[in-house]
Amino acid sequence: MCSEVPMGSKAAILVLTDERPEGLFRGAVGWDRTRSLDLAARFLGGTPRESGVLPLDLAVWPEDGAACVASFPHFDVVCSRKIARDHPSDLVSEAARLAGKRSAYAVCMESSEDWASILAWSPTGLLRAVSLSPRSGVIEDVGQKFPFEQPFWNGQRPVQASSYRLPFHPIDLGNEALRYFFGFILEGKEDDLCVDPEEVEIPVFDPS
């Protein structure tokens, strides 16, 4: 089957954890307000102001300048449009600064451009950085591909239009990255292990 272009998937999410990333949000129960504020301050600078909460499906793409930040028991999450980089490897220094001795995973995408990027980093170095869009082609492709990527690169998720510059839609890849790393998707077919992102809340912080 040829996929259609998904509409409305926008995300810029960075997760910091010392555990395996698969399905992290499936175990997300309550965030620590003090640690969340501290992380928001480290990311935004100054003294951020908490201005409310958003469900995860909206928190992954907050308003310009704002950040959705939460510190859960086993991982931290930062969502901000500042995370969205054409070259995800450019995010490594920021991810390393926030992660410390933990690993970092980022998924960014913008459906209006059918663009997606993925970053995986550990204290030992860069594991994976991939970014692509039909306008720019493959922007970056570094490191070993994750299992969820293989069907895309192997031609099992083809695009119907023969003139399309890529063999698959990056937005489809981005949603599968969300599923694999974090246990939720914005669009596509949910499986039994997917968390409903409308049921997970993330606080919103505005810069001072």
Rank of each mutant, 00 (worst) to 15 (best):
I118H: 00
L132C: 14
S117W: 05
R135M: 07
P134K: 04
D141N: 13
P123Y: 05
E113H: 09
S117T: 07
S117Q: 13
I139D: 07
E140M: 10
A116I: 02
S112T: 15
Y105R: 10
L132K: 03
A120M: 09
T124G: 14
L132E: 09
V142Q: 06
L132A: 14
S136H: 11
G125H: 06
V130G: 06
A106W: 05
C108E: 00
M109W: 04
T124I: 08
T124W: 08
V130Q: 00
A129I: 01
S136G: 02
P134L: 09
A104N: 14
S112R: 12
V107Y: 09
E113M: 13
V142N: 00
L119N: 00
S122I: 00
V142D: 05
P123W: 06
D114A: 09
S103T: 14
R135E: 11
Y105G: 01
S131N: 11
S117R: 03
G137H: 00
A120P: 04
R135S: 11
S111V: 04
S103I: 14
S136I: 01
A120I: 00
Y105M: 10
W121V: 02
S112F: 13
Y105V: 08
A116G: 13
L119G: 06
L132D: 00
C108D: 03
T124D: 14
V130S: 01
A129T: 03
S103K: 15
S112Y: 13
I139A: 03
W115F: 15
S111D: 13
S133C: 09
P134D: 01
V107N: 11
I139T: 11
